[in-house]
Simulated scan of single mutants.
Amino acid sequence: MPFIVTDLNSAEQPRFDLHMHSTASDGALSPAELVARAAEASIRYLALTDHDTLAGLNEARVEAVRQGIQFIPGVELTCRWHKRTLHLLGLGIDPEYEGWREYEARLQRLREQRAETIAFKLRGKRAPDDILERARTHAGRGQIGRPHFARALLEAGVVSTENEAFDRYLGQGKVGDVKAEWPDVAEAIAIVQASGGKAILAHPTKYRMTFSRLRLLLSALAEAGADGFEIGYPGISQDYIRLLLKQAEVLDMQVSSGSDFHNPEHHWTGLGRFPRVETSRHLIHQFYTDMPL
């Protein structure tokens, strides 16, 4: 099936972004601020996909109505596949689905347990005794995660930038890269779909797999009933886009795109900025049809 890859600043309308984060998890902007900024960027279709929580959806929806934006309720669920941590987007979910309350509470407990372990390990690597309290302060009412520890390490003077915090302490394979017994990916797919959403693997090339291993993962997800995977996001190469689109054809799966926006200070991404891929397999076309402007 033919497709076109264009640059990061495509003038295609209406603009959309199906992957972003607010202060409900590890983003820097409140849900309302995030939606307002998206409106300034001329985004007309928007999905808020905070990590393991639906807490910001109502605030974002209210602001989206005010801004004339079509709002797509979403979430980014942490899960596992063969002991490997994955992120699964749920797009177009029903936040009122009765199963979400218990599932969110379970993820909250896992995040709190992981945060305690991260703090314990960081205290053995020059971090102050109150590193957990500092991280919780940065998390506020949102889900605590490694970015909050990065800000806490910066505040404590242990590192000079948040990037350094990840490079030295929190990134993959570092002391603060603590694993948790996240739900299996099949369970994450099931609750997304039970709540009426599409189950989409987030940023597939960021799991440090060979492409052969990634093909196995995508095949396993297709067999488990996942709807598709992201194909356009910051940092992906056009070569990988072509390879992934071929896998979408082979596996008969849908594709999605989004900025994975967290913070306006992060220079490598911005709302609505990601490689554009034109294909009938793209999930945005379903939202265009189901939610016309």
Rank of each mutant, 00 (worst) to 15 (best):
118 I>F: 07
50 D>H: 07
142 G>N: 07
59 E>Y: 06
74 G>K: 05
105 A>R: 13
28 A>L: 07
140 G>Q: 09
53 T>R: 05
134 R>K: 12
105 A>F: 09
36 A>C: 12
67 Q>C: 00
36 A>I: 14
157 G>P: 01
144 I>M: 07
129 D>K: 15
36 A>F: 10
127 A>D: 07
131 I>T: 09
162 E>G: 06
28 A>F: 08
98 E>V: 15
65 V>C: 05
60 A>S: 07
142 G>M: 01
106 R>E: 14
65 V>D: 03
79 C>G: 05
141 R>G: 11
160 S>C: 13
81 W>T: 05
97 Y>T: 11
74 G>C: 02
129 D>R: 14
105 A>P: 01
78 T>H: 07
164 E>Y: 09
119 A>M: 09
29 L>C: 04
118 I>V: 13
62 V>L: 00
162 E>T: 13
90 G>S: 07
38 A>C: 09
67 Q>H: 06
28 A>N: 09
64 A>Q: 00
38 A>N: 10
131 I>P: 00
43 I>A: 06
113 Q>Y: 14
75 V>H: 10
81 W>N: 05
52 D>I: 00
71 F>I: 03
133 E>S: 10
52 D>R: 07
120 F>V: 15
103 Y>K: 12
73 P>N: 10
115 A>H: 10
140 G>T: 12
144 I>D: 03
142 G>S: 07
84 R>P: 01
58 N>F: 02
63 E>S: 03
93 I>W: 04
123 R>N: 11
65 V>F: 02
155 E>L: 07
66 R>I: 01
64 A>Y: 00
151 R>T: 10
96 E>T: 14
122 L>P: 06
136 R>G: 06
77 L>D: 08
134 R>Q: 08
46 L>T: 05
65 V>T: 12
135 A>Q: 02
97 Y>C: 03
52 D>M: 02
159 V>R: 06
106 R>Q: 15
135 A>F: 00
155 E>D: 10
101 R>D: 14
152 A>N: 08
132 L>V: 09
64 A>P: 00
85 T>F: 03
122 L>V: 12
94 D>P: 04
159 V>G: 03
147 P>Y: 09
67 Q>T: 00
164 E>C: 04
81 W>C: 02
51 H>A: 09
125 K>C: 14
76 E>W: 02
132 L>K: 08
104 E>S: 10
143 Q>R: 15
143 Q>N: 15
161 T>S: 10
128 P>R: 11
95 P>Y: 02
94 D>G: 04
146 R>N: 04
33 E>A: 08
161 T>Y: 08
87 H>T: 06
31 P>E: 04
163 N>Y: 13
26 D>M: 01
72 I>R: 00
58 N>E: 11
77 L>Y: 10
60 A>G: 08
42 S>G: 13
107 L>K: 13
158 V>E: 10
135 A>V: 06
79 C>H: 05
111 R>C: 01
100 W>V: 09
121 K>R: 15
59 E>G: 05
78 T>G: 04
33 E>W: 07
157 G>D: 04
32 A>T: 15
38 A>I: 06
86 L>S: 06
40 E>V: 14
151 R>K: 15
114 R>T: 11
163 N>E: 14
123 R>W: 08
76 E>M: 01
140 G>V: 09
45 Y>F: 08
